[in-house]
Amino acid sequence: MAEQHYPMLSLRGLTRRFGGLTAVDAIDLDLARGELISIIGPNGAGKTTLFNLVTGLDRPDAGTVRFEGQDITGLSPERLAAEGIARTFQLGRVFGNLSVMDNVLIGAHTRLRAVKPAVPVIGPLLELGLALLRPSSVKAEEERLREEVKAILARFGERLLPRIDQPAYSLSYANRRRVEIARALALKPRLLLLDEPTAGMNPTETAEMQALVAELKAEGLTILLIEHKLEMVMRLSDRVIVMDEGKKIAEGPGEVVRTDPKVIEAYLGHGLSGAAEQESAA
Protein backbone atom coordinates (compact mmCIF):
# COMPACT_ATOMS: atom_id res chain seq x y z
CA MET A 1 0.00 0.00 0.00
CA ALA A 2 1.06 3.55 -0.76
CA GLU A 3 0.48 4.44 2.86
CA GLN A 4 3.55 2.43 3.84
CA HIS A 5 5.82 5.06 2.29
CA TYR A 6 4.75 7.74 4.67
CA PRO A 7 6.18 8.14 8.12
CA MET A 8 3.57 8.05 10.86
CA LEU A 9 4.25 11.65 11.79
CA SER A 10 6.20 14.18 9.84
CA LEU A 11 6.88 17.80 10.82
CA ARG A 12 8.34 20.36 8.44
CA GLY A 13 9.52 23.81 9.47
CA LEU A 14 7.13 23.88 12.41
CA THR A 15 7.26 27.28 14.12
CA ARG A 16 5.37 28.96 16.94
CA ARG A 17 6.10 32.43 18.27
CA PHE A 18 4.83 34.06 21.45
CA GLY A 19 5.40 37.77 21.01
CA GLY A 20 9.15 38.16 20.60
CA LEU A 21 9.91 34.62 21.73
CA THR A 22 10.16 31.80 19.22
CA ALA A 23 9.11 28.84 21.34
CA VAL A 24 9.33 26.35 18.47
CA ASP A 25 11.71 27.27 15.68
CA ALA A 26 11.52 25.50 12.31
CA ILE A 27 11.42 21.97 13.66
CA ASP A 28 11.65 19.02 11.20
CA LEU A 29 10.93 15.54 12.44
CA ASP A 30 10.00 12.14 10.99
CA LEU A 31 8.60 9.42 13.17
CA ALA A 32 8.23 5.94 11.60
CA ARG A 33 5.53 3.46 12.52
CA GLY A 34 6.46 1.63 15.73
CA GLU A 35 9.32 3.96 16.50
CA LEU A 36 9.92 5.67 19.84
CA ILE A 37 11.58 9.06 19.72
CA SER A 38 12.47 11.02 22.83
CA ILE A 39 12.62 14.77 22.91
CA ILE A 40 14.90 16.23 25.54
CA GLY A 41 16.09 19.71 26.28
CA PRO A 42 16.40 22.21 29.09
CA ASN A 43 13.35 23.89 30.65
CA GLY A 44 11.62 26.25 28.28
CA ALA A 45 13.15 24.60 25.22
CA GLY A 46 9.73 24.38 23.56
CA LYS A 47 9.00 20.67 23.96
CA THR A 48 5.50 21.02 25.35
CA THR A 49 4.67 23.70 22.82
CA LEU A 50 5.70 21.28 20.09
CA PHE A 51 3.28 18.69 21.51
CA ASN A 52 0.52 21.31 21.57
CA LEU A 53 1.14 22.01 17.88
CA VAL A 54 0.99 18.32 16.97
CA THR A 55 -2.20 17.67 18.95
CA GLY A 56 -4.07 20.74 17.71
CA LEU A 57 -4.27 22.57 21.04
CA ASP A 58 -2.20 25.36 19.52
CA ARG A 59 -1.75 26.43 15.89
CA PRO A 60 1.67 26.93 14.31
CA ASP A 61 2.69 30.25 12.77
CA ALA A 62 4.48 28.36 10.02
CA GLY A 63 5.21 24.83 8.91
CA THR A 64 3.18 21.66 8.46
CA VAL A 65 2.20 18.60 10.43
CA ARG A 66 1.50 15.40 8.50
CA PHE A 67 -0.02 12.31 10.02
CA GLU A 68 0.15 9.17 7.87
CA GLY A 69 0.64 11.35 4.85
CA GLN A 70 -2.36 13.61 5.49
CA ASP A 71 -1.86 17.28 6.21
CA ILE A 72 -3.37 17.84 9.66
CA THR A 73 -1.89 21.28 10.37
CA GLY A 74 -4.29 23.43 12.36
CA LEU A 75 -7.02 20.79 12.73
CA SER A 76 -8.94 20.87 15.99
CA PRO A 77 -7.87 18.62 18.86
CA GLU A 78 -11.24 16.85 18.63
CA ARG A 79 -10.54 15.86 15.03
CA LEU A 80 -7.04 14.72 15.83
CA ALA A 81 -8.24 12.61 18.73
CA ALA A 82 -10.63 10.92 16.34
CA GLU A 83 -7.70 10.29 13.99
CA GLY A 84 -5.99 8.36 16.75
CA ILE A 85 -3.59 10.82 18.36
CA ALA A 86 -3.56 10.66 22.16
CA ARG A 87 -1.45 12.58 24.62
CA THR A 88 -0.76 13.07 28.29
CA PHE A 89 -0.07 16.43 29.87
CA GLN A 90 3.02 17.55 31.72
CA LEU A 91 1.14 18.89 34.74
CA GLY A 92 -1.34 16.03 34.76
CA ARG A 93 -4.79 16.96 33.55
CA VAL A 94 -7.13 14.35 34.91
CA PHE A 95 -10.79 15.18 35.41
CA GLY A 96 -10.66 15.75 39.15
CA ASN A 97 -14.29 15.04 40.05
CA LEU A 98 -14.66 12.01 37.77
CA SER A 99 -13.99 8.52 39.04
CA VAL A 100 -11.00 6.60 37.70
CA MET A 101 -13.42 4.55 35.59
CA ASP A 102 -15.06 7.65 34.09
CA ASN A 103 -11.72 9.31 33.42
CA VAL A 104 -10.56 6.36 31.39
CA LEU A 105 -13.95 5.99 29.69
CA ILE A 106 -13.56 9.56 28.42
CA GLY A 107 -10.43 8.28 26.72
CA ALA A 108 -12.64 5.87 24.78
CA HIS A 109 -15.04 8.64 23.77
CA THR A 110 -13.90 8.77 20.15
CA ARG A 111 -14.68 5.07 19.84
CA LEU A 112 -18.33 5.35 20.82
CA ARG A 113 -20.43 4.24 17.86
CA ALA A 114 -23.82 2.92 18.99
CA VAL A 115 -24.68 5.99 21.03
CA LYS A 116 -23.18 8.49 18.59
CA PRO A 117 -24.64 7.77 15.18
CA ALA A 118 -22.73 9.54 12.42
CA VAL A 119 -25.77 11.42 11.12
CA PRO A 120 -25.35 15.05 10.07
CA VAL A 121 -27.31 17.88 11.71
CA ILE A 122 -29.58 15.80 13.95
CA GLY A 123 -26.73 13.57 15.15
CA PRO A 124 -26.40 15.38 18.47
CA LEU A 125 -30.14 15.12 19.13
CA LEU A 126 -30.05 11.40 18.39
CA GLU A 127 -27.15 11.11 20.79
CA LEU A 128 -29.23 12.80 23.51
CA GLY A 129 -32.18 10.53 22.78
CA LEU A 130 -30.07 7.37 22.77
CA ALA A 131 -28.35 8.39 26.00
CA LEU A 132 -31.76 8.68 27.67
CA LEU A 133 -33.45 5.66 26.10
CA ARG A 134 -30.42 3.39 26.18
CA PRO A 135 -31.38 0.61 23.80
CA SER A 136 -29.54 -2.68 24.20
CA SER A 137 -26.90 -1.76 21.60
CA VAL A 138 -25.92 1.28 23.66
CA LYS A 139 -25.88 -0.72 26.88
CA ALA A 140 -23.75 -3.42 25.29
CA GLU A 141 -21.26 -0.90 23.99
CA GLU A 142 -20.95 0.76 27.38
CA GLU A 143 -20.50 -2.62 29.05
CA ARG A 144 -17.80 -3.62 26.57
CA LEU A 145 -15.90 -0.38 27.12
CA ARG A 146 -16.09 -0.82 30.88
CA GLU A 147 -14.54 -4.26 30.58
CA GLU A 148 -11.85 -2.79 28.35
CA VAL A 149 -11.12 -0.08 30.91
CA LYS A 150 -10.66 -2.71 33.58
CA ALA A 151 -8.21 -4.54 31.32
CA ILE A 152 -6.25 -1.33 30.76
CA LEU A 153 -6.21 -0.55 34.48
CA ALA A 154 -4.94 -4.08 35.15
CA ARG A 155 -1.74 -3.12 33.36
CA PHE A 156 -0.93 -0.92 36.32
CA GLY A 157 -1.09 -3.88 38.71
CA GLU A 158 -2.91 -3.08 41.93
CA ARG A 159 -2.29 0.65 41.65
CA LEU A 160 -5.59 1.69 40.10
CA LEU A 161 -8.00 -1.24 40.09
CA PRO A 162 -8.88 -1.04 43.80
CA ARG A 163 -9.55 2.70 43.36
CA ILE A 164 -11.67 2.41 40.26
CA ASP A 165 -14.66 4.24 41.76
CA GLN A 166 -12.71 6.91 43.60
CA PRO A 167 -12.68 10.48 42.26
CA ALA A 168 -9.40 11.32 40.59
CA TYR A 169 -8.70 14.28 42.86
CA SER A 170 -8.35 11.87 45.79
CA LEU A 171 -5.55 9.87 44.13
CA SER A 172 -1.86 10.25 44.80
CA TYR A 173 0.12 12.27 42.30
CA ALA A 174 1.69 9.20 40.72
CA ASN A 175 -1.68 7.52 40.39
CA ARG A 176 -3.12 10.53 38.63
CA ARG A 177 -0.31 10.29 36.11
CA ARG A 178 -1.19 6.64 35.63
CA VAL A 179 -4.84 7.49 35.10
CA GLU A 180 -3.78 9.89 32.39
CA ILE A 181 -1.85 7.20 30.60
CA ALA A 182 -4.71 4.74 30.99
CA ARG A 183 -7.03 7.36 29.49
CA ALA A 184 -4.68 7.77 26.53
CA LEU A 185 -4.55 4.01 26.00
CA ALA A 186 -8.34 3.78 26.04
CA LEU A 187 -8.36 5.85 22.87
CA LYS A 188 -6.52 2.95 21.14
CA PRO A 189 -4.08 5.51 19.77
CA ARG A 190 -2.03 5.12 16.64
CA LEU A 191 0.33 7.78 17.93
CA LEU A 192 0.94 8.38 21.62
CA LEU A 193 2.59 11.53 22.98
CA LEU A 194 3.82 11.38 26.55
CA ASP A 195 4.86 14.65 28.22
CA GLU A 196 7.18 13.80 31.12
CA PRO A 197 5.24 10.75 32.32
CA THR A 198 7.57 10.22 35.30
CA ALA A 199 7.78 13.82 36.52
CA GLY A 200 7.57 13.80 40.31
CA MET A 201 7.77 10.02 40.61
CA ASN A 202 10.18 8.21 42.92
CA PRO A 203 12.71 5.68 41.50
CA THR A 204 10.43 2.63 41.99
CA GLU A 205 7.52 4.34 40.31
CA THR A 206 9.78 5.55 37.53
CA ALA A 207 11.01 2.03 36.93
CA GLU A 208 7.41 0.78 36.70
CA MET A 209 6.53 3.50 34.24
CA GLN A 210 9.60 2.73 32.18
CA ALA A 211 8.61 -0.95 32.03
CA LEU A 212 5.12 0.03 30.89
CA VAL A 213 6.40 2.28 28.12
CA ALA A 214 8.78 -0.47 27.01
CA GLU A 215 5.81 -2.86 26.86
CA LEU A 216 3.76 -0.44 24.78
CA LYS A 217 6.68 -0.05 22.40
CA ALA A 218 7.07 -3.79 22.14
CA GLU A 219 3.38 -4.00 21.21
CA GLY A 220 4.16 -1.78 18.24
CA LEU A 221 2.78 1.54 19.42
CA THR A 222 4.39 4.64 17.91
CA ILE A 223 5.49 6.96 20.71
CA LEU A 224 6.85 10.47 21.07
CA LEU A 225 8.25 10.95 24.56
CA ILE A 226 9.34 14.07 26.41
CA GLU A 227 11.46 13.06 29.36
CA HIS A 228 14.08 14.62 31.57
CA LYS A 229 15.33 11.37 33.10
CA LEU A 230 18.15 10.51 30.73
CA GLU A 231 18.55 6.98 32.06
CA MET A 232 15.06 6.15 30.86
CA VAL A 233 15.52 8.02 27.60
CA MET A 234 18.67 6.04 26.78
CA ARG A 235 17.00 2.71 27.43
CA LEU A 236 13.77 3.30 25.56
CA SER A 237 14.50 5.50 22.59
CA ASP A 238 15.24 4.50 19.03
CA ARG A 239 16.36 8.07 18.48
CA VAL A 240 16.76 11.17 20.61
CA ILE A 241 16.07 14.74 19.58
CA VAL A 242 17.54 17.59 21.59
CA MET A 243 15.82 20.97 21.59
CA ASP A 244 17.11 24.23 22.91
CA GLU A 245 15.45 27.64 22.62
CA GLY A 246 12.96 26.24 20.14
CA LYS A 247 15.55 24.76 17.78
CA LYS A 248 16.54 21.18 17.18
CA ILE A 249 20.26 21.15 18.09
CA ALA A 250 20.98 17.44 17.82
CA GLU A 251 19.36 14.23 16.65
CA GLY A 252 20.51 10.62 16.70
CA PRO A 253 20.99 7.55 18.85
CA GLY A 254 21.10 8.28 22.57
CA GLU A 255 24.78 7.56 23.13
CA VAL A 256 25.86 9.81 20.28
CA VAL A 257 23.61 12.70 21.29
CA ARG A 258 24.67 12.45 24.89
CA THR A 259 28.29 13.23 24.14
CA ASP A 260 27.51 15.93 21.56
CA PRO A 261 29.32 19.11 22.68
CA LYS A 262 26.39 21.28 21.55
CA VAL A 263 24.06 19.34 23.81
CA ILE A 264 26.37 19.53 26.79
CA GLU A 265 26.72 23.24 26.23
CA ALA A 266 22.97 23.76 25.99
CA TYR A 267 22.47 22.12 29.36
CA LEU A 268 25.43 23.89 30.98
CA GLY A 269 24.40 27.19 29.46
CA HIS A 270 21.12 26.93 31.29
CA GLY A 271 22.80 26.17 34.60
CA LEU A 272 21.74 23.22 36.62
CA SER A 273 18.32 22.81 35.07
CA GLY A 274 16.34 20.20 33.24
CA ALA A 275 18.11 16.94 32.60
CA ALA A 276 21.28 17.92 34.39
CA GLU A 277 19.34 18.58 37.55
CA GLN A 278 17.27 15.43 37.26
CA GLU A 279 20.38 13.36 36.62
CA SER A 280 22.25 14.66 39.61
CA ALA A 281 19.17 14.20 41.79
CA ALA A 282 18.71 10.59 40.73
Partner: peptide, 26 residues
Protein backbone atom coordinates in the same frame (compact mmCIF):
# COMPACT_ATOMS: atom_id res chain seq x y z
CA UNK B 1 -30.74 9.23 33.84
CA UNK B 2 -28.83 11.68 31.69
CA UNK B 3 -26.15 12.04 34.36
CA UNK B 4 -25.52 8.30 34.45
CA UNK B 5 -25.13 8.10 30.68
CA UNK B 6 -21.99 8.82 28.68
CA UNK B 7 -23.28 12.39 28.36
CA UNK B 8 -23.12 12.87 32.12
CA UNK B 9 -19.43 12.03 32.23
CA UNK B 10 -18.75 14.04 29.09
CA UNK B 11 -20.41 17.14 30.58
CA UNK B 12 -18.47 16.77 33.81
CA UNK B 13 -15.22 16.22 31.96
CA UNK B 14 -15.73 19.46 30.04
CA UNK B 15 -16.40 21.26 33.29
CA UNK B 16 -13.33 19.87 35.04
CA UNK B 17 -10.89 20.51 32.19
CA UNK B 18 -12.12 21.65 28.81
CA UNK B 19 -8.69 21.40 27.20
CA UNK B 20 -8.13 17.80 28.22
CA UNK B 21 -11.70 17.06 27.15
CA UNK B 22 -11.07 18.44 23.67
CA UNK B 23 -7.84 16.48 23.44
CA UNK B 24 -9.98 13.36 23.90
CA UNK B 25 -12.42 14.24 21.17
CA UNK B 26 -15.18 16.03 23.06
Amino acid sequence: RLLTSHLGRSFRAIRDDDIAARAYGL
